[in-house]
């Protein structure tokens, strides 16, 4: 079970959340007509460019003198330990919406910066929705077996080091399985991507 990498691809994703996109783009509570019109253009242009993929593995959570181990991922992060308290299993996942949106951002960066900012925001909203969808799936799958899924925790949060990205990328064979790669400086490309750990906590029946 633990040695298998699972892949999920999503074709029917929830529709765009405009308010969320505008928030990501720096429009705090309102946006005028012009911005809405530009956002419409951006949504139309980018509608087909997303390719939603998730690669994940399930682990028994091992607690040892070095902290916590999920397969070959070993960390003494106290924050992760707190997150996984009471979880006997955990999932490590990597999600990406693909390179298409990066190309849109790049294409507009120098010539239409406002659009680039909106594409950036659309990408951010998409990857969050993808993570939500994936976690909902886990919830459904494991809820039936008496587990609940804890909230997502990523390298770089709290004391969970960014260097764990290397282990996660090997663990999930990200490049091959979902086309997600890591630069030497630990940045993910495509950029609209997330790696995270979620705990599976047995629901106390009492």
């Amino acid at each position: 079970m633990q040695d298998k990498i699972f892949i999920k691809t999503y074709e029917n994703m929830p529709s765009f959340d405009r308010a969320e996109i505008l928030r990501y783009a720096g429009c705090k509570d309102s946006a005028d007509e012009q911005i809405h019109a530009l956002l419409n253009d951006c949504l139309n242009e980018s509608a087909g460019v997303f390719s939603y993929r998730v690669s994940y593995r399930l682990f028994d959570v091992k607690r040892n003198t070095g902290g916590i181990a999920l397969g070959e991922l070993q960390t003494d992060s106290a924050a992760l330990a707190r997150r996984l308290a009471g979880c006997e299993k955990a999932a490590v996942f990597a999600a990406t919406v693909g390179l298409g949106i990066d190309r849109f951002i790049e294409r507009n960066a120098g010539v239409a910066t406002a659009k680039a900012v909106l594409f950036q925001a659309i990408g951010a909203e998409r990857i969050e929705r993808l993570c939500d969808s994936f976690c909902e799936d886990l919830e459904r799958e494991y809820g039936a077996r008496g587990y609940k899924v804890t909230s997502r925790f990523s390298p770089g949060y709290g004391d969970l080091p960014m260097t764990l990205q290397k282990t996660i990328f090997t663990q999930l064979d990200c490049a091959r399985k979902i086309g997600l790669t890591l630069t030497d400086s630990l940045l993910m490309t495509p950029t609209k991507s997330v790696t995270a750990i979620v705990g599976l906590q047995k629901i106390d029946e009492n």
Binding site: G26, I35, A112, T113, V117, L118
Partner: peptide, 11 residues
């Protein structure tokens, strides 16, 4: 005004 508006003016 917000960032996209600022940038639209800039463009």
């Amino acid at each position: 005004a917000f960032l996209p508006a600022l940038l639209m003016s800039a463009e």
